[in-house]
Amino acid sequence: MKFSTFFYTLWQGVKNIFRNKLFSLASVATISACLFLFGVFYSILANFQHIVKTAEEGVCVVVFFDEDITEERISEIGTMITKRPEVSKINYVSAEDAWNVFKDEYLGEYSDGFTENPLADCANYEIYLNDVSLQNALVTYLESVPGISEVKRSELTALTLSNANKLIGYVSLGIIGILLAVSVFLISNTVTIGIQVRKEEISIMKYIGATDYFVRAPFVIEGILIGLIGSAIPLGLIYFIYNRALNFVRDQFKVLSSLLNFLTVNDVYKMLLPICLGIGVGIGFLGSFSTVRKHLRV
């Protein structure tokens, strides 16, 4: 295709949009609404996941040892634990370390009264997991290891979080799916009307020797442009309100502020931008291309 033809086709596509403003507007509005919802849900989910993940990274299982355990056995257990696939990191805390931490955190200057380490039997392993849902399996395993006297599991489980996650996911998928179908339908109508309005022009084009491609392209471009505008609007909107929303949430849940580790808008957009544009353009293309195939016998 020639350069000038490309621009001519593009210009015709733009003109098509303005030829039937009402339908174009309806299509853009539906896609926008759809992708706006998608964007909002996506942002919420992404942050949710991020928060859960941050929380999960802090989750660790602590194991204590039998009183008469040898140093060798402790390091043997350490090697065994490290080999487990669900373990991401393991940290040995000696009795002195444990005492030092305890001292610093709770006793401060009052610690001078202790001559012996009261936590002498408190050497332990802090075991960090790469997936919290595997905690049960690990605990079961650890309890069966000889030499381990006690396994302390973390009370924070991601189970509740991930269930909420799923529910939001399904509901939003349903709504988005319906809206997507409506968008395709509306774009198809917009293009059909465009074709009807331009029947005369199309027939002249065919007499003069326009290729199928040349006749069809402006309508497909019309659809793609509608999709593009329809995705640009919600993307702009969400970008604009994202930080405001975060600040609002932070204000509302001050208590949880240490837990609420939000993503920046740019982090969210790394995925949201291409997905939204892809869906918008994809729907525009799908709606117009299928309609053109059906109604534009050339």
Binding site: M1, K2, S4, T5, Y8, E200, E201, S203, I204, M205, I208, G209, A210, F214
Partner: peptide, 24 residues
């Protein structure tokens, strides 16, 4: 006649050339 009513004389004739992809 079958001219395009929304376009002027020049555009109506140029239209035929655009269709066969003559450079601008």
């Amino acid at each position: 006649f079958r001219l395009l009513k929304d376009r002027n004389v020049y555009e109506n004739v140029a239209f035929a050339q655009r269709i066969i992809e003559v450079p601008s």
